[in-house]
Design a protein around this nucleic acid. Structure first.
Lengths: 119, 119
DNA sequence: TTTCATAGGGAATAATTGTTCCCTGGGGGA
DNA sequence: TCCCCCAGGGAACAATTATTCCCTATGAAA
């Protein structure tokens, strides 16, 4: 188990949401699941840029934040499915707002591409 | 200058927005500025948990993403003021959605406090 | 004249997060 | 039998991000 060394205050809504959604691919995962991509292997194929390992870890974190639920179908071949919980669904408008802004402004920040943080 | 080693694809709106808003305190900074806390020293006092150094760095990054603009008043004593640009204002609904979700659900995830990432 | 406030940067280091590589174990096709 | 599918974890390491400490400079107050 890993224990944070630096405490976080969860007074601020922003910090709370970011804690749940802050991982590199979490919002993408939730988004994909909401669009019907529910099985781990499908998610891997849908989000190619994410390494499979992180995807699994972040799925697990989302599960234990109560955002997604995991359903294991008995029998072989193995079948696992992730679904949004009601709490997860309540995140959708937030994610949509984030996605929308990004799409609308993707040109504006093209110059931010790789190597900013200069000076 | 720092150059990312791992490329990012900016095709996904979520990734774009997170690039702009992803720093630990950026959303809080934008939020504060929108509420009238515009001078660096006031921001430091408003967001106590952030170390002053990061606050400066993130302000600078926000500036060069075009989210905030910096106004330097000539003369002494020194006076600097940050304001939201129109682009920055367009982020407000997004931030508000994030904040709202977090506030509404802060109790639900209290058990996520410090030490998750178990197993 | 020491101390505080203003605004901020450099450098080193710590903390966090993500990646890579490799392994478990069973089913099924060539 | 060899290889790929499924679902997933351990360990070590690389990359990123944040913190800490200490520095610049000027004005004003104690």
């Amino acid at each position: 188990m890993y224990t944070r060394k630096i405490p976080e205050d969860l007074d601020c809504g922003i910090v709370v949401t970011m804690k749940v959604l802050g991982g590199k691919w979490k919002a993408c995962i939730v988004d994909s699941i909401s669009k019907g991509v529910k099985r781990p292997s499908d998610l891997h194929r849908a989000i190619v840029d994410a390494s499979p390992r992180v995807l699994n870890m972040q799925l697990h974190e989302l599960e234990n934040s109560g955002i997604v639920s995991k359903k294991i179908y008995p029998g072989l071949p193995l079948k696992v499915e992730y679904n949004l919980t009601p709490l997860g669904c309540s995140l959708l408008p937030v994610i949509e707002a984030i996605d929308k802004w990004g799409i609308e402004n993707s040109q504006l920040i093209t110059h931010l591409r790789a190597d900013v943080r200069e000076v």
